[in-house]
Amino acid sequence: MTRVWDVPVHDSTRVRDVRVAAEAAAETTGLGRDRGAVAVLVATELATNLLKHGGGGRILLETVHTDLAPPGTAGRGPALQIAAIDHGQGIADLAAASRDGFSTTSSLGAGLGTCRRIADHFEVHTVPGRGTVALARVHATRRDRPGHGSPGTSAPVRAGGVNVPLAAAEHSGDAWACVRHHDLVTLLLADGLGHGPSAAKASGAAVAELRRLAHLPPAELLGALHPALHDTRGAAVAVARLDLVNLRLDFAGIGNIGARLRSGDTWTPLLSHPGIVGAHRPARLPRSSLPWTHDSLLVLHSDGLPSRWVPPPLAHLTTWDPAVTAAVIMRDSSSAARPARDDTTVAVLAPTPQDHRT
C-alpha cells in the first residue's frame, strides 16, 4: 500500500513534525543510518525554507522507484522523495538561496546549497507570485552525479509523480508505477475506489501486477488486472506503454483517470472507458496510439485533480524533473475554494534531456 507523509508547515512548530516524519519515511525506504540522516537534514531544511520564502506550505515524503535504465545495468533501487510545495511569492534570488550556508537563524544552517550537494537529486522550480517546488531524492547508497544537481541516467525517458492522500491520511488510495521491460516503458496509475487502506489495497494490487506483467500491451494488461483486483474494491486504472524503438505511445484505460499527451504546443486528451477494474469489465476498450517525439510529455492523474487543469508554461517543461512537473500541476490546480474530495496523484513521463544522460 502507498504510504505518504503529508505534513503541513505553517509555523515553526511543524518543522519538528517534518523531522519526525522524515525519520519514519527514511526507515520505511530502507535508507540506513547515514543516508537516513541526510534525508532528515534535507527535509528539515526544506520545511524551514517553506516558512522563509513561501509563507508556509506542505512537505510530501514517499518511497519511489524512478530508474528506467536499460536491462542489465545497475538499478538505483528505492529512494525517499521529499517535495516541498508552496503557493508563496517565490524565491527572489534563487542563486543566493542555493549557496551553502545561506540560512535563517532558526534553520540547521545547511541552506538549499547543502541540500543540493548531499541529496542524490535536488531541483528547485520557483516563479515570482506563484510559488516554489523544491524536490529531493535520497537513495540508500550515495551515487556520484554530474553537475546541476541532476543524476545522470542512460534511460531515454524519465518518470515521476506526486501523491497526496485525502486529509493527510496515512495511506493513499492512489498508486502509480513505471516499469521498463526491454525497450518498452509502461506507466500505470490506479485509483482505488474511495480512499483509505481498502482503496490502497486495490491500487497496490494493480501496481504489483504491472511489475509482473510489464511485457503486456495496455489493453491486455487491463484484462489481466480484473482477476487480480476481484477481491478488492476495484480501481480506475490507466496504462500507457512507450515503445522506445518505434517511438509510439499506446494507451488504454478504465475509469476516470485523466490522461493528456503533449506534442509540440498541442495537448491531446487520451480517453478511458467507463468501468471499474476488478468489477465491471467492458467488452472492448478504446485504444490510442500516437507518436512520441523529443518534446512529448505524458500526464496521468486521478480524479482528485480537476479535469480542466491548465498546463504549466511550455518553456523548458521537458527539462524539469517529471516529479517537479507533477507537483506544479497539482499545486496550480488546487485552491482553498476548491478543496480536494479524494486522494490526488499526478504521474508524468518525459524525455530525458541530453545533458542529463551519462
Rank of each mutant, 00 (worst) to 15 (best):
Leu188Trp: 13
Val179Ser: 06
Leu187Lys: 10
Ser150Thr: 05
Pro128Gly: 04
Cys115Ser: 08
Arg145Trp: 11
Gly131Cys: 03
Thr132Gly: 09
His148Asn: 15
Ala119Tyr: 07
Asp144Arg: 12
Cys115Ile: 01
Arg180Glu: 06
Gly173Ser: 09
Gly196Tyr: 05
Arg143Leu: 13
Gly160Tyr: 10
His181Gln: 13
Ala159Glu: 13
Leu189Trp: 03
Ala169Ile: 01
Thr141Ile: 11
Arg130Ile: 00
Gly173Trp: 12
Ser198Leu: 12
Gly161Glu: 06
Gly129His: 06
His125Pro: 03
Leu166Phe: 14
Val133Gln: 04
Thr126Glu: 05
Ala177Lys: 14
Arg145Pro: 00
Gly131Ile: 00
Ser150Glu: 14
Gly194Gln: 12
Ala155Asn: 06
Leu135Ile: 08
Arg145Ala: 08
Pro151Ser: 01
Thr132Leu: 10
Val179Pro: 07
Gly194Ala: 09
Ala190Ser: 10
Cys115Thr: 04
Gly160Arg: 08
Gly131Met: 00
Ala140Ser: 15
His139Tyr: 15
Ala140Thr: 12
Gly173His: 10
Ala134Val: 01
Arg137Cys: 03
Asp144Pro: 13
His195Lys: 03
Ser172Tyr: 07
Val138Leu: 01
Thr126Ala: 06
Pro165Gly: 05
His148Val: 12
Val157Trp: 11
Cys178Asn: 04
His181Met: 02
Ser154Phe: 11
Pro156Tyr: 03
Thr153Ser: 15
Leu189Ile: 00
